[in-house]
Amino acid sequence: MADTKTDNKTKFIKGYTAMVLSRTLDKKIVNAQRQGRVGFYTPTMGQEALQIGAGMALEDRDLIYGYYRDVPLMISRGVPIETILNQIFGNSADISKGRQMPSHFGVKKFNFMSVPSPVASNMPLAVGAAYSIRYKKENKIVLSTFGEGSTSTPDFHASMNLAAVFNVPVVFLCENNGWAISMPVEKQTKVEIWTKAAAYGMRGIKVDGNNMLETYEVVSDAIKRARAGEGPTLIDAISYRMGPHSTSDDPSKYRSQEVTEGSENDPITVTEKLLKGMNYIDDKFIESIKAKTQKIVDDKFDECEKIPPPDPATAFQDVYKNMTWMLSEEVGGIL
């Protein structure tokens, strides 16, 4: 018991630290975008607790099929913030070689599958990957994440059904931030998201996504079941998109801000309160970690911003293993 307690303490403090790093980075990128230093970004503010709670429940070998708002999840996995920033800048150190617009990450080393723009379209891939895991007898599971707006798509329904029919090791985590751009969840669907699971013969469960510890528990349980061959789970993690949909969006057009930074529903405030109550952290720790993190983020941001753009010739590679004659001819006329 004592060991679990120390383990948990280390784990939760690490989780909290990841939250602070995510938030600091998020604000840094949003501000830089306003200054014209970054092209575009989808802020993650408000979804830190649920993503990091889920991240803590995963093993490194597990696969993530995520979406464009998963920076905290990546951070909780240990993806260096340089990797994230280089993608945002689309510079020559970016894994996708400056091809994808910001927020479309992919980091194979951390088993984070490359993100496309069409929402929910990574979901069927997650089911296929989970099938292959079982076929290959690998001890892994797949975490599939998406927003609540994405549950209206055919890809969502197809994936839920296929995952249940094939009983594969996948956990569906709906990051229910209440909004799909300007559409509130009530206009998106008539029922609560987690109740949809029943229609597919799958477990469905709702969790307070602002509570990192509860999310961790719920996701851990779903993962345990998936690993044991008990099939998929749909988790409806309720949170709030504190920022705009993207840096191109003005939410004042369609809603009033319900959760502001530092208010009692801000997941960071919630987590601080929880961990302080457990005597894991105190105000001094919080202050020092925030200051330290700010410095790291500022420094890394400046470093990554200086990295030059990719060589234009790389824009036309990786379409196939070998470049087609058409493309080499066309590129010849461009470069």
Partner: peptide, 8 residues
Amino acid sequence: RYRSGGEY
């Protein structure tokens, strides 16, 4: 293949 920089 393209969007993942050839990783996947």
